[in-house]
Amino acid sequence: MKEIFPDVFIENNKIFTKNLTPGEKVYGEDLIIRDDIEYRNWNYTRSKLAAGLKNGLKEFPLKKGMKVLYLGVASGTSASHFSDIINKEGLLYGVDIAERVLRELIIHAEKRENIVPILADSRLPENYSSLVLEKVDLVFEDVASSDQIEIFIRNCDYYLKQNGYAIIAIKSQSIDVTKDPEIIYKESLKELKKHLTIIDKVKLDPYEKHHLLVVLQKK
């Protein structure tokens, strides 16, 4: 087990995080024990941030104790690994518009105690301001909708701390299926730069087709 970033591990080309709730799986991932510590396999074909790691992401700002706002949290496949990393001292506010997926997330949220599931449309950040108590250290977005850049910027404006980090998974197919992904990436990056500083980016092919993962900072 080699630690490639704080609390992110690699063994035999597989990525792992320490299981916050030992014995519990979230999405059928493998659990393994090394030196009495249980690790969960972070499947890079199921999670975009893991795919980013696999493809050589150099900036990985997620750390223990962080407050995170996660847009498009779904049933928590990725969010559960965020929850492992931020640990008990951290807190993840997970927003999703679909009841169906949050139903699954709640079951894990109740066990993990560091996930706050919020049923809301992330287009309207003010609608969950009574639930998100504080500015956050990191905003993560994976919503796959045509206005995903706008949603991201709006939430960063509203909730991200000065010098805080932001990560977005841009899905070109959602923004415009007819356009060349490269053009969409370029336009999206141009828009993002007006508000935040880009510190790293990596394509997610072949794990997620037509996706670009971008790490930014609010400076």
């Binding site: 001292e89 807190l91 009841e99 949050l102 139903r103 709640i106 949220a109 109740e110 105690e113 560091n114 996930i115 706050v116 599931p117 919020i118 049923l119 639930l131 108590l133």
Partner: peptide, 24 residues
């Protein structure tokens, strides 16, 4: 502060449960 967030986390989970219940 941790005590506050822990409590509020629990309240929000309950609140979201109500929303999900009503969404059917």
């Amino acid at each position: 502060p941790n005590e506050v967030t822990q409590f509020i986390t629990k309240v929000t989970i309950q609140l979201t449960k109500v929303h999900i219940k009503k969404s059917v």
